[in-house]
Design a binder for these strands. Structure first.
Lengths: 340, 340
DNA sequence: CTTCATAGGTTAATCGATTAACCAACATAC
DNA sequence: GTATGTTGGTTAATCGATTAACCTATGAAG
């Protein structure tokens, strides 16, 4: 058995001062009340004993726990979540905070329960992460706990939030195609009602129309955003008269299906068909052959931003909420070429 | 501004009892000392006021925070991590615990720092997760904090740990092949020095030898476990005289390369070549065509197990440490057929 | 020679629970 | 009628920090 953890009182005794002095010396608080030589003596004693403050006791007194709650719906089941968590984690750690995680199935009651569990532990603030960028309401359970939305936003802008700039990302990958000379650009997408779908679709429509091309004959919609349905959709699209010279896919998984369809139809990418996509998933986009050009979802940066913003609100509770759009940089690879 | 959170004293006053009675009534502690009618009165008052205990204050007194530290090296950068975290999270939550996460780059000092940060927050125990199953030493910084290793183990078995049963999983996917009648089974693997490689390789060698076949001419090793090198390795292997009728790949990413090599050589999977693999990554194995038969790494179950074991050790600090092997079930898909 | 700052501390209250030790009232046993 | 439980509580100490309020020399000012 190791000897018990030393308390502040032990440090104070070893340095021959009171606990008040020890506390002020170690925390640089209390103004210039502590003499430099005393401060050094306390520091030395603390180091000698291997003193680590008990943040539970400190938190009780200061009403600050240096912990941030991170609640996500289905955090772990989506491959993106990791990057969001890591971004939030890194920003928190740099400021001396730790992340207390709760995962919910997205259910309302469960979310309220999770928030309650975090509040009982007196977290200083909460990051509410929703996978797949949606418009949500801040749950009542939040009460007056400072809170930032991650990959989601409120309709009325009453809370700070950060979401990816889907429109910008779409324009980015489409520019890769138009820049190479494509105008007949197809789109294969899902029918699922997610924000991402709507924005990517609308932006594509607009951009293709701008090129003087009617987008409707170049559109394929399937049930879900799976590889299999991406394959089936592409097979259909590429068999139409006046086949597009390039395809913009809703996401990388569908793009993977498009690759297969192209191969089966004897179309070589990028020579006969250029392909761009969205999400830039590390297991897919660089692994396909040729490497897939894709707009990246900036999950790491969004996670960071959310925590930095939360910390700002902790410092200044009066600060006005901010809605942030995070750019989606294009990962340029080898799936785009000039049309024949 | 919302009115301040009610304290236990407020509940006690509302119910007309002392805080001691209120505490015992709400916590069912103190034996049968509290009358049923009083207990009900206290409960009602608590519900009325919306009382939530301050676990920081409670933790200071009880020396229990109901929080578990989860430290992982590169938690978020690996696609597996999510499932491990979720498994640990779910088991913790069911027991009323929350997970305090720290991610490190695997660096020794950083890990020690992380453990220190968790200990300052008085976590009740620590799950130490290493990605990619390795033999490690428990860091000194752990001290006497209860601790369980996740996807890693110690050489001497001094700490509880759980790792995947790589040998069992390998035997499982190989049985898919031998069961279909294959004996000339190739293996394409990486040269990286990870435990997984060694076990999968040895088990394959043994099994192929058992079939009366010399494994060495059927082995290809490449620098890293990437799709590109899997492709190159397979191209070489499949061009050898006496080509194997089936291939066991180190992981799904390499298998993805093997699929491409087979396609280029005009070999149809599974008709001309059967393929099995390891990891069962959801973004790859089901998305390939035909679906890839692969041994799944039971990350969710391992995460759960680690926390359940940790809770057991919290209850009984004298309990002997346990080393657990978690089975790797085979996800059977369509990449295996009889040899021609 | 008083009076007042100032530097450098110390004392004690406090955060919000839990819990050991104590107490009053009433019933039961002998 | 006195000892002995039992029931149903209460009082007060405690966990380990932080911090407001207070104290004591010492030097400078008037």
């Amino acid at each position: 058995m190791v000897t018990k953890q030393p308390r502040l009182a032990d440090v104070a005794r070893a340095a021959g001062v009171s606990t008040a002095t020890a506390s002020m010396a170690l925390n640089e608080t209390g103004g210039r009340r502590i003499g430099p030589e005393t401060r050094e003596r306390v520091r030395a004693a603390a180091a000698e004993l291997g003193y680590r403050p008990n943040t539970v006791a400190r938190g009780l007194r200061t009403r600050r726990t240096q912990m941030i709650g991170f609640v996500g719906d289905d955090v772990a089941t989506t491959p993106f979540a990791g990057q969001m968590i890591r971004g939030a984690h890194d920003a928190a750690r740099e400021a001396g905070f730790l992340l207390l995680m709760v995962d919910t199935s997205g259910d309302k009651d469960e979310t309220a329960e999770a928030i309650g569990a975090l509040q009982e532990r007196q977290i200083d603030g909460i990051v509410l992460a929703t996978m797949y960028h949606q418009v949500v309401e801040v749950p009542d359970a939040i009460g007056s706990t400072p809170c930032v939305l991650l990959d989601a936003r409120t309709a009325d802008g009453s809370a700070s939030s950060v979401v990816p700039d889907e429109r910008g990302g779409t324009l980015g990958v489409l520019a890769e195609l138009t820049g190479a000379g494509h105008v007949r650009i197809g789109h294969v997408t899902t029918r699922e009602e997610v924000q991402a779908r709507a924005v990517r679709l609308a932006t594509w429509r607009e951009r293709v129309s701008d090129c003087g091309v009617d987008p409707e004959p170049l559109l394929v919609e399937v049930e879900d955003a799976t590889t299999q349905l991406g394959y089936e959709g592409a097979l259909e699209l590429l068999s139409r008269p006046d086949r597009p010279t390039a395809v913009f896919c809703f996401n990388d998984r569908m793009a993977m299906g498009v690759y297969r369809a192209a191969a089966e139809l004897g179309l070589s990418i990028p020579h006969d068909l250029s392909v761009v996509s969205y999400d830039d998933q590390e297991l897919i986009a660089p692994a396909l052959h040729p490497g897939l050009t894709s707009a990246a979802l900036p999950h790491y940066e969004m996670g960071r931003w959310a925590v930095v913003e939360l910390l700002r609100r902790l410092d200044d509770p009066e600060a006005a909420p901010v809605q942030h759009l995070m750019p989606c940089p294009v990962a340029r690879r080898h799936s785009v070429a000039k049309p024949q």
